[in-house]
Design a binder for these strands. Structure first.
Lengths: 209, 209
DNA sequence: GTCTATACAAAGATAGAC
DNA sequence: GTCTATCTTTGTATAGAC
């Protein structure tokens, strides 16, 4: 008395999809190394060999899953940075807000992605389509126009914007361990930063570089 | 006709040290996952079992080697940030220089720190002695004096300094994958940043916050 | 204490039957 | 498409020589 197919809790979907779903949950929860193909197979209710059958390797499965995650966020970003009806300052504010909100909601996801991204950055970057967002956006055009003839490198400026927004979330655990800062005060610090970053970035724009 | 000991290129030192030396080279060169205990043993000219004999596990060996690196770096930092004979601007420049030089040489160290931060931030912070460097330095005193009565939060300022310096190394793999930036041009970008960061941080100091 | 040889288990990957 | 059986690599542990 046994069903030959779909013995898992996830039913009524193809094995391929069940594997992907199980993999996403496990990868986000435990990270790449700590997640085994046997874990994934068990959660998907199938044999170990099936994981390699559908996705050539654990590595490829991981890349597939992570690309799904990133792509959703990046598609929202793409619309925002290409909106011709908003000013550069408005875009910077929206940019900072979107990232801080996303990272406040998923604190683990960032370090997870960053630490595991070394494994195959090429697959992520190309398939998520970061190039147009980073290098062909209206935001970048507005930035170049604003900079004019002064010697500010747009890439350095953009890197600084990203850094000011994202880095605190990376440093958070260490900051809290070293200084005893609470979750609440860190949260308050990031809320304050929503206004501070646009202010400082504007200051840099108007200064000489 | 064979020597029972020290058949490796690294001679005249204890096996324990040879293992540590070989491990550091390989970890820095190939990363944690790609480096096997058998690689390390071969490079150290000893048996695989010796690696586990002296260091309980590959993970412990990695931690030992990397924490050595970090501690040495931080001790240098401590002297620098507490030098009463240098100005705030000089310290910022030295700070940026030291970090960029260190991270250019040891790209994997950063990933190690990030994953360790997640695993046990308390241990890392105390073992390396970050507290006095971050929160009791002459640098911080000079910063507070310089800020005076204006509404700049020293912590926000310091966080920004760290972010501008460290974040690019975190983003490097993704940046290179997305834009096709070569190792050389990334290196050049970071060299340019040695001057840019102190300039921008000084600009922020003199602006209103 | 040091070292060699070897065993063992876990995990990724593959071949071939059905 | 799916499964069983198997192979290979790799981290770890043990037994025993010197």
């Amino acid at each position: 008395m046994r069903t030959p197919k779909q013995s898992s809790a996830i039913a009524d979907v193809s094995t391929e999809t069940r594997i992907r779903t199980a993999a996403r949950q496990l990868f986000v929860q435990k990270g790449f190394t700590a997640t085994t193909t046997r874990d994934i197979a068990a959660a998907a209710g199938c044999n170990v060999a099936l994981v390699n059958y559908y996705y050539r390797s654990k590595q490829d499965l991981f890349a597939t899953v992570m690309i799904e995650h990133l792509r959703a966020f990046m598609m929202g970003m793409r619309d925002m940075v290409n909106d011709t009806s908003t000013s550069l300052e408005q875009k910077i504010t929206s940019f900072v807000d979107a990232y801080i909100t996303m990272l406040q909601a998923n604190p683990d996801l960032l370090i997870f992605i960053l630490s595991e991204i070394r494994r195959d950055p090429e697959a992520l970057a190309t398939q998520v389509g970061m190039k147009p967002i980073l290098f062909e956006s209206v935001l970048l055009q507005q930035l170049k126009r604003r900079i004019g003839r002064r010697r500010i490198d747009p890439m350095q400026y953009f890197m600084t914007l990203m850094a000011m927004t994202v880095f605190p979330f990376i440093a958070q655990p260490l900051l809290q361990a070293a200084s005893g800062v609470t979750d609440e005060s860190f949260h308050a610090m990031m809320e304050q930063r929503r206004a501070l970053i646009p202010l400082w970035m504007t200051t840099l724009l108007d200064a000489k570089g």
